[in-house]
Design a protein around this nucleic acid. Structure first.
Length: 560
RNA sequence: GCGGGUGUAGCUCAAUGGUAGAGCCCCAGCCUUCCAAGCUGGUUGUGAGGGUUCAAUUCCCUUCACCCGCUCCA
């Protein structure tokens, strides 16, 4: 299947539109249309129901180490900035970067250093991304090459001073002017006006290939309150998980839950993706479905395996059953510094090269990293231990809340910091995968019995935006009246669609295209014996039931 | 972010420095008794901004979006 065809179908039938389309669109943002919103809602509701509301905490589900509880949470998108400092998101990627137009490499602005050198009447700044002796040697080598010198002519190079960071350069070395920030209150940050025309980039052969320093930040910023200044800066959350961790104590104190238990949340998250591409796969605004499952450290490996297998099974059950879905355990070197095990549930999206998979969900064993970080301060790995990261003065780099986030088991009289298993799913990615998997073409006979192309979405009935359509075979002889009665009976129970326009074959095809599993048709026999036909989307098979039994028939089949 | 390509109706595609066409779709009516194409009529468009020109969809510049490759990917 070509991705273009699915994108066209999504657009044509109102599943997905580009955000702000009439203004030319906005990269990395998408809107769900009337059918898309139903589909995505069904994905979310299937997840919430299966993980939270339908969960029976009285007995262990198959494969689970023990019975456990599940509760939900819905926390704010904007949280205290300290949340992101302790979680590690703040430090991870908020640097000034320079790009090299020649080598297409990107460097951290403060990590590019170099030396001024003069030769043959030309004065240039030779840059390196290495420091110390390596940097000295590299800049020497680069300068020799640039000025086309032989080894014996090395003395022709007149070096000025030693290695200095690009960021620390001041006039007269490089013209670095900071524009008065008052002129640009909108950004609230200094803008750079730099002249790198005499700078030889670390991997460049010609001068002036470096761009001006640009600030990269994975988090979207905002400024709560009517007055904008740096002290009021906050972030739109890059993940929902942290809201769960910072509410761990609240949930424990207010709900009588006992470990092991999980907290689930569905909500929007925001990331400044560098390259939003591939339809909704990598969006800057997206929705997550996350569980943080808290358990005793000793049983955490079993819980990790339980959740990994259970989450994989969830996708299988909803129709991602083919070879395009896989469960992949991370290699050791792939793990985050705090993780003791991570598995990705991946789907071979059609826009990816053959053999490549895209992540739908990550299931991670996060140990006690998060609760400890929010209690003690941002942690870093030291050997095989996690310790609070300190600054030059030995104080925590990012202070934690200071609140005790340990758990006391009053039956075993044991106090411990729970370990966390995190199944983190992308609602938009799951929705996209279900659409990709459902997209089918086959052949069905037309009115003359000739095979014609048929396009349909083989969506699981739980996910289908419309569960059934009701048609009068023709718009006369009292058929519409009967069909409308059936429609009226069904509509309060699930989304159904009524259509009496044009030929019935066309109406079937239209429903096939949006994945409606069943079509109910009133014909002349209905007028005699009260039976209608029900037609199956996937097999085109038809059978008759009494019109008063449509509701039960559909309920049974939709539950199956 | 870099390089290349693309941008005409909801879709597929024409055309021209001088009134933008067709098929499909869609809508209304007629016809129609089970799997899209019957008849009649109808709606809809040059991604955005600027420039050159008497006149720009066409030429130029900028911008936006999408596609491909590289880069990046918490």
């Amino acid at each position: 299947m070509e991705m273009e065809q699915l994108v066209a179908l999504c657009r044509r039938r109102g599943f997905l539109f580009q955000s702000s389309e009439i203004y030319g669109g906005l990269q990395g943002f998408w809107d769900y249309g009337p059918l898309g919103v139903e589909l995505k809602r069904n994905v979310r509701e299937a997840w919430w129901r299966d993980m939270v509301t339908a969960h029976n905490e009285l007995e262990p589900p198959p494969g689970a180490p023990s019975a456990f509880e599940m509760v939900g949470l819905d926390c704010s998108i904007i949280m205290h900035p300290q949340v992101w400092k302790c979680s590690g998101h703040y430090d991870l990627f908020h640097d000034f970067m320079v790009d090299c137009r020649e080598s297409n490499k990107r460097y951290r602005y403060d990590q590019v250093c170099g030396r001024w050198v003069e030769c043959k009447g030309q004065r240039i700044f030779v840059a390196s991304d290495l420091g110390g002796d390596e940097g000295i040697e590299l800049t020497r080598h680069k300068a020799m090459k640039f000025f086309n010198l032989r080894g014996k002519d090395a003395d022709a190079l007149a070096w000025e001073g030693t290695l200095v960071s690009l960021a620390e350069l001041e006039e007269p070395y490089v013209e670095l002017k900071i524009i008065d920030t008052k002129e640009k209150p909108a950004s609230g940050k200094p803008s750079f006006l730099v002249d790198f025309s005499q700078v030889l980039g670390p991997d460049a052969k010609t001068l002036g290939t470096l761009t001006e320093p640009r600030e990269f930040n994975l988090m979207l910023e905002t400024y709560p309150g009517p007055v904008r200044d740096e002290s009021s800066k906050a972030f739109l959350r890059p993940e929902t998980a942290q809201g769960i961790f910072v509410n761990f104590k609240n949930v424990c104190d207010s709900t009588r839950v006992r470990i092991p238990f999980g907290i689930a949340q569905i909500g929007k998250s925001f990331r400044n993706e560098i390259t939003p591409r591939n339809f909704t796969f990598r969006s800057r605004e997206f929705e997550q479905m996350e569980i943080e499952f808290f358990c005793h450290p000793d049983t955490s490996p079993e819980w990790y395996r339980y959740w990994r297998d259970r989450r994989y099974q969830w996708y299988l059950d909803l129709g991602l059953a083919g070879e395009r879905l896989r469960l992949r355990d991370h290699e050791k070197d792939e793990l985050s510094h705090y993780s003791r095990g991570t598995a990705d549930i991946e789907y071979a999206f059609p826009f990816l090269p053959t053999g490549e998979f895209g992540e739908l969900e990550g299931v991670a064993h996060r140990g006690d990293f998060d609760l400890r970080s929010h209690a003690e301060g941002k942690l870093v790995r030291q050997g095989d231990k996690l310790v609070v990261e300190t600054d030059a003065e030995g104080k925590p780099r990012h202070r934690g809340s200071g609140k005790d986030l340990s758990y006391f088991d009053d039956q075993t009289k044991e106090r411990f910091i729970p370990h966390v298993i995190e199944p983190s799913a992308g609602a938009d990615r799951a929705t996209l995968a279900f659409l990709c998997e459902a997209y089918r073409e086959d052949e069905a006979p037309d009115e003359h019995g000739k095979p014609t192309k048929r396009l349909f979405l083989k969506l699981h009935p739980r996910l289908a935006p419309i569960k059934a359509a009701v048609f009068p075979l023709v718009k006369k002889d009292g058929m519409p009246e009967v069909a409308r009665e059936i429609y009226k009976t069904l509509k309060p129970h699930f989304p159904v669609f009524y259509d009496e326009k044009s030929a019935v074959g066309r109406r079937y095809r239209r429903q096939d295209e949006v994945g409606t599993p069943f079509c109910i048709t009133v014909d002349s026999q209905t007028l005699q014996d009260g039976t209608v036909t029900i037609r199956d989307r996937d097999t085109l098979r038809q059978w008759r039931v009494h019109k008063d039994e449509c509701l039960d028939e559909l309920k049974t089949r939709l539950m199956a």
